[in-house]
């Protein structure tokens, strides 16, 4: 009997859906072994059809995108119940992804800019889209929360397929491993086990032990990137040494540094912290002012550089959100005290 498989997307760009389509002929062959029972982008099955399945009837659900809306949360919980195996597919589901950078901003900033202050907005009084405002037109608009979460903050996840987007070879291997008689242990990230350098064509030219640099360069600032020399040796902040392998160094073959979309190696909790500490260890200085200058010139955006794909799943995000909660509670308490004082007067 064919194994039942589901594909679902949360807040995503559609690249992970294309990643499945890019399996091309392999996807047609795979259909001999699997039966797709849910794939909103490609097939006509509906949530009700999933509800009618017995618990655990789906062999594996592949879920991409970060979780941003309550209805996405409901669907992934349903899929969890119906599936033996849940796979977080792609960077957003694995670690929160690029749209997860929104977590560092306030929801109100987004609305003010989009609907009031943007350069081309023709402001219409204080009007902006809201679920309540839309209701007057009989249109149901969902609430926008503005906080992205990786899948494992919402449901239990059995496997991860990393990448933004996962390249065809990785998706293919992952499918074959899951369908085999001896699938890998739960929790496995279905890609390489070593750092990207292990499969990088420039690994032979990697820096020697104790290599130090005085300057990081931004890729835009050099007019020629030597395609035959390790990018770190050229001062480019390549995150290959702390990033999981599996993509066969695609970006480096495109003569650009690795930005870490495959996430950390096993045992590393916070990718950004590992990346930061790795690059910091290369800096050839003990002088604080000089270190600051090296960072300002070569790594002017630490958050975006180290957490481009992983902010929502990071320790830093936890700290930030807790801090915000505290600040909110503090503000509310202040307001209550103020209101009471006014009342007493």
């Amino acid at each position: 009997m064919k194994k039942k498989v589901a594909f679902y997307w949360c807040a995503s760009c559609g690249g992970c859906e294309e990643a499945v389509v890019d399996l091309a002929e392999f996807l047609l062959d795979a259909l001999e072994q699997i039966e797709i029972v849910f794939w909103p982008v490609a097939m006509d099955f509906k949530i009700e059809d999933v509800e009618q399945l017995t618990d655990g009837e789906i062999f594996a659900s592949f879920i991409n995108g970060a979780v941003l809306l309550s209805d996405q949360e409901e669907v992934v919980r349903l899929l969890r119940r119906k599936s033996q195996v849940v796979v977080a597919f792609g960077s957003c589901s694995h670690q929160g992804g690029v749209p997860g950078l929104i977590n560092t901003h306030d929801r109100q900033d987004v609305f003010d800019y989009y609907y009031h202050n943007g350069p081309t907005v023709q402001r219409n009084g204080n009007e902006m889209p809201t679920p309540t405002g839309a209701k007057a037109f009989h249109v149901a608009l969902p609430e926008y929360y503005g906080k992205a979460r990786p899948l494992n903050q919402v449901i239990e996840v059995d496997y991860y397929i990393p990448g933004c987007a996962p390249p065809p070879n990785v998706v293919k291997d992952a499918l074959l491993q899951l369908l085999s008689d001896s699938p890998p242990p739960r929790g496995t990230v279905l890609a390489g086990a070593h750092s990207l350098c292990s499969e990088c064509p420039l690994n032979e030219t990697k820096p020697p032990e104790g290599f130090k640099i005085k300057q990081f360069v931004r890729p835009s600032q050099v007019t020629h990137i030597d395609p035959d020399t390790c990018l770190l040796m050229q001062g480019l902040p390549c995150l290959g040494p702390v990033t999981r392998s599996g993509c066969n160094a695609l970006c480096i073959k495109g003569h650009m540094p690795c930005t870490g979309c495959f996430g950390p190696l096993d045992g590393v909790r916070d990718f950004g912290a590992a990346a930061l500490s790795f690059l910091a260890s290369l800096i050839d200085s003990n002088d604080e002012a000089e270190i600051q200058r090296i960072i300002d010139e070569g790594l002017p955006d630490p958050l975006g550089t180290f957490y481009m794909y992983s902010f929502p799943g990071s320790l830093l995000n936890e700290v930030l959100q807790k801090g915000r909660q505290k600040a909110r509670a503090w503000r509310e308490r202040e307001e209550t005290v103020e209101a009471q004082t006014t009342e007493n007067q």
């Binding site: 989009y114 609907y115 943007g118 350069p119 081309t120 907005v121 023709q122 402001r123 219409n124 009007e127 902006m128 889209p129 809201t130 405002g133 839309a134 007057a136 037109f137 249109v139 608009l141 926008y144």
Partner: peptide, 16 residues
Amino acid sequence: YQDHLAEHVEPWTYVK
């Protein structure tokens, strides 16, 4: 482009 194009906001959709 800013001399020629502008965005209109409606309360019932997030698109401008």
